[in-house]
């Protein structure tokens, strides 16, 4: 399955998807030391986003969340790429300063955690690879 979105931050990545269907707050919602989601309202609470391709509808919460994304990168716990339906200031800024490839305009309800995906942020393409299920 191929989905087409638009670039926010360029780059390429391939890895396992971790998908949330709810808006995500990074400040207070993701532990910058471990990459584990702690946001009480999140449907991926307790899961790690480190080294994954993280997909969710949009960011929420404090604009300081951008710095949490930067800290995840410095701590080696950042996602390999970020996919959102709607980019907003917090996550876009975080992805830029951390240099994480990011695509917007993707219907994340079509994505499932655990599947492998390949992302080409420059062209805005997300390809979900055969899952082997």
């Amino acid at each position: 399955m191929k989905l087409k979105g638009r670039k926010v931050v360029g780059g390429k990545a391939e890895g396992e998807l971790v998908v949330s269907q709810k808006p995500l707050s990074f400040l207070g919602g993701v532990d910058p030391d471990t990459g584990i989601v702690t946001d009480a309202e999140s449907d991926i609470r307790g899961q790690s986003i480190a080294g994954k391709i993280l997909a969710f509808p949009r960011g929420k919460g404090s604009t300081v969340g951008s710095y949490v994304i930067y800290a995840l990168k410095k701590n080696g716990k950042a996602p390999k790429a970020i996919i959102v339906e709607e980019a907003e200031t917090i996550v876009a800024t975080g992805a830029i300063i951390a240099g994480i490839p990011m695509v917007q305009g993707i219907d994340v309800s079509k994505l499932k955690s655990g599947r492998k995906a390949r992302i080409d942020a420059d062209s805005g393409e997300v390809e979900v690879l055969e899952s082997g299920e």
């Binding site: 910058p32 300081v64 710095y67 949490v68 930067y70 800290a71 410095k74």
Partner: peptide, 10 residues
């Protein structure tokens, strides 16, 4: 309190 170590590093 808001930016924490992450913000300082940035």
């Amino acid at each position: 309190k808001n930016i924490g170590e992450a913000g300082v590093e940035f």
